[in-house]
């Protein structure tokens, strides 16, 4: 079976996923993901016309709580794992607008 996935597909998906890939990774994923997608073809043997989709295995009414303020994570804890705080209460990131 021909590979259902092209190198251009892999490059496009990597951009969508915000994932830089090395040349070696892109080549390897083209082959491996192609094999896996070909394996998925067997699902087409099943007629699923009219079958409901299971999005979640347990269907129960959403659990809602009263919309009342309550204590949340302290600010210092919330920022505690940030690689660059750039100040007291900021996540610093590279420049977004040139």
């Amino acid at each position: 079976m021909s590979n259902p996935l092209t190198r251009a597909d892999v490059d496009r998906i990597a951009r969508l996923a915000h994932l830089e890939l090395t040349e070696r990774e892109a080549e390897q994923f083209t082959r491996q993901l192609g094999d896996i997608l070909a394996y998925f073809e067997r699902l087409n043997r099943i007629d699923t016309a009219g079958v409901a989709a299971t999005t979640h295995p347990v269907t129960s009414a959403p659990v809602m709580r009263d919309d009342e303020p309550r204590p949340s994570l302290p600010v210092d804890d919330a920022f505690g794992n940030a690689p660059d705080r750039g100040g007291e209460r900021l996540f610093r990131v590279p420049k977004v607008i040139g």
Binding site: L5, I13, A14, L16, L19, F29
Partner: peptide, 15 residues
């Protein structure tokens, strides 16, 4: 590698 493979696979399936 395995996490990258699955992110790629999932992104493809949802694209």
């Amino acid at each position: 590698d395995e996490v990258k493979r699955r992110i790629m696979l999932g992104t493809y399936a949802l694209s």
